Structure formats: C-alpha cells, structure tokens
Computed example of a mutant assay.
Amino acid sequence: MSFKIITDSTADLPDSYVAEHDIIVLGMTVTVGDDSYETVGEGRLTNDTLLAEIAKGKKVQTAQVNSGQFLEVFKASAQAGEEVLYLAFSSGLSGTYQSSVMAREMALEEFPEAKITVFDTLAAASGEGFIVEEVVKLREAGHSVEEVVSQLEHLSTHLQSLFMVDDLNHLALGGRISKAVAVMGTMANIKPLLYVDKPGTLQQAGRVRGKKKALNSLIKDTLEGMDTAYSKVIVSYSGEDATAQEIKACFLEAGVQEVEVRPLSPTIVTHTGAGTIAIFSMGRNPRA
C-alpha cells in the first residue's frame, strides 16, 4: 500500500469499507446534556440514542478532533515509516482541519523526514466520504500522494452536496436562521434547500413549501448537474430510511448506475435533527 488514508467520523463511511481499505477514522465528540460520547469505536454514540435525547429536549453540541489526537496518529505513522494523507472535514464548518495542520507542524519538528499531507475536502458527511472513496480508487490504481492531490482539487470543487432539513428549529439553534423564521416556516410547512458552497460553508439555495416538492427539487437539481463520468449518488438521511430508499429508486430509474443509502453521522445530526435528507454526487461544473 503506497500511503495511509486518514479521515474523520463525519465522512459517514461504512465500517466494513473502512476495515477493508485500512482507513484510519478519527472521531468527533458529541455532548448530550452532561454526557460526552465518542463517534468511533466501541460504545460510540448512535443516531437512535442521539435523536431520542434530542426529542427529550437535551442540549447537544459537538467538539472537533483536536491537535493532540492528530499528533498521536501522525507520530505513529512517522515512526512506522508510513506516508499519510489526511482528508479533512470542511474548514468552513469545523476547526478540525486547522487542528490537523498544527499537528502536522509539531510532528515534523520531531520527525522532519515524515511525509504527512493534509487536504481540506471542503465537504461534509458522505460528500467527504465520496471524496475518500475516490482517493481509495486512485491509491489502488497505484497513484502517489502527489498525483492524488493533483486530482483532489477537481474532485473537491465539483462535488455536489444538496440538503433538505425537515426541522427548522435545529437551524435556528445553530444560528443559520432566526427563531422567528423557524416558527413561521414550520407553521407554513416551509422546507429550506441547502448546499455546500465553494468555501465549504452551508448556504441556502431556496425554500419550498412541502417536503415532497423539496425532495423532488433536490433530485431534479442533482440529475441536471451531474457529471455522467461519475454515475454515482449517495443519499444520506437521519431518522428512518424509508424516504432515502424512495429517492434511491428514483435515481436508479433515471439511469444512475450506483446509488448508496447511508445514515448521517451523529455529528451532523446534532445540527440538523431528524428527517434530514442529503444527496451527494459529482457535478459537471465547479460549485459556486
């Protein structure tokens, strides 16, 4: 194996995939009320537990991967003589990328010959995972880190990440919209359509009345913007997966060759709540 791939738990990669491709996944921490939970390993926080606690009115918040966690992994790889590539959760949504940069500098002070590359995917959830999977394919085809990085900018800037949040109150708690707008929007059955922009931040693309219309809009926008060279879509959800499975069927009927359904990670669900749908694909054009 030419280099080790590292990412974080927000990438929403299946455990089986992580094990098969020997990927290191670092976990965010989620605090629910007075209790803190890890998002990787045994006893990690599940969405069922998180959503049940949210329904009880518990306050929830997340903490980024800190520089100490990165330093430990970077030093271990340096001691083993492994070259590493860390694919980071968007710097527009978390300070995790900055923590990895600090840790890289500290590791190089002790191991100046170490080969440690960090890359800001400017993506979230299975959008980040989408990029990780493309990097795995490149690694398995024999590409070096330098060759992979030369292609990563295209992958990152062309990734389409479209979201529909069912519960406006979570956007209000996160400061994305005002509480007044959340109340009025809920009463009017308004569903905000969101996307991840070029700097990797979450932006509102529009508002649609009714969940069905909102989901149809996400499907339509995804299909219209897709790069046919990447006939792959990942549909992510929080709560029940029935809606996500219906969306998968729509994409398969439209001719998309590969469609996967995955749960959103607790880190993301903390900020979006239940009923969120996110659709990830590779676009023909760079994101705005």
Rank of each mutant, 00 (worst) to 15 (best):
A172S: 15
M102C: 04
V25L: 01
R104N: 05
I131L: 15
A76I: 09
I219Y: 11
S67R: 09
G41I: 13
G200W: 08
Y97M: 11
A288R: 13
S67M: 11
L152P: 03
S94N: 06
S178V: 09
A278Q: 00
V101P: 04
S150I: 04
F130I: 02
M102F: 14
A182D: 08
N189L: 06
M187Y: 07
I24S: 05
P263G: 03
L223N: 03
G43H: 11
G174S: 13
E240H: 11
Q69I: 03
V118K: 01
E153G: 03
Y97Q: 04
L193K: 05
T270N: 04
E246Y: 13
Y237L: 03
L155F: 13
T267S: 14
A114R: 03
K4N: 07
A288T: 12
L85H: 12
K115Q: 14
S16Y: 11
V183T: 15
L50F: 04
V132G: 01
S100I: 06
F74D: 02
L122T: 03
G95S: 11
L26K: 03
M164G: 04
E133Y: 06
N285G: 03
G206E: 12
P263A: 11
A214L: 09
G68V: 08
T272F: 00
D35T: 14
G95R: 07
L45H: 01
E246F: 11
F111S: 03
G273S: 07
V145A: 12
L85W: 02
T157I: 12
T10Q: 01
K198Y: 14
T62P: 05
M1T: 13
M1F: 08
P192V: 13
L202R: 01
P199M: 09
T117K: 08
A141H: 11
S156W: 01
D227Q: 12
G68S: 09
E113P: 04
A180V: 15
A278R: 00
A249L: 13
A242W: 12
G239E: 00
S67P: 08
Y97R: 06
A78T: 02
E113Q: 15
H271E: 05
S94Y: 00
M187S: 10
K115N: 13
L51W: 00
G129V: 02
A19V: 10
A229L: 14
E260I: 10
V235T: 03
M164H: 07
P199A: 04
A52L: 05
L155M: 14
E246Q: 14
H271G: 01
P192L: 09
F251N: 02
R139M: 09
V60S: 02
L108M: 12
A229Q: 14
Y86F: 15
G57F: 12
T62A: 10
E246G: 05
H154W: 13
V148I: 13
D227L: 10
M282V: 13
M187N: 07
G275N: 03
G43D: 12
P286K: 14
Y237N: 00
G142F: 12
E38Y: 09
V149Q: 04
I23N: 02
L159E: 04
G275R: 05
L26F: 06
S16R: 15
G27W: 01
S90Q: 10
K137F: 08
I23E: 01
D48V: 11
E105W: 07
R262I: 07
A88T: 12
R284P: 02
D15G: 06
L13A: 08
A214S: 07
S2N: 15
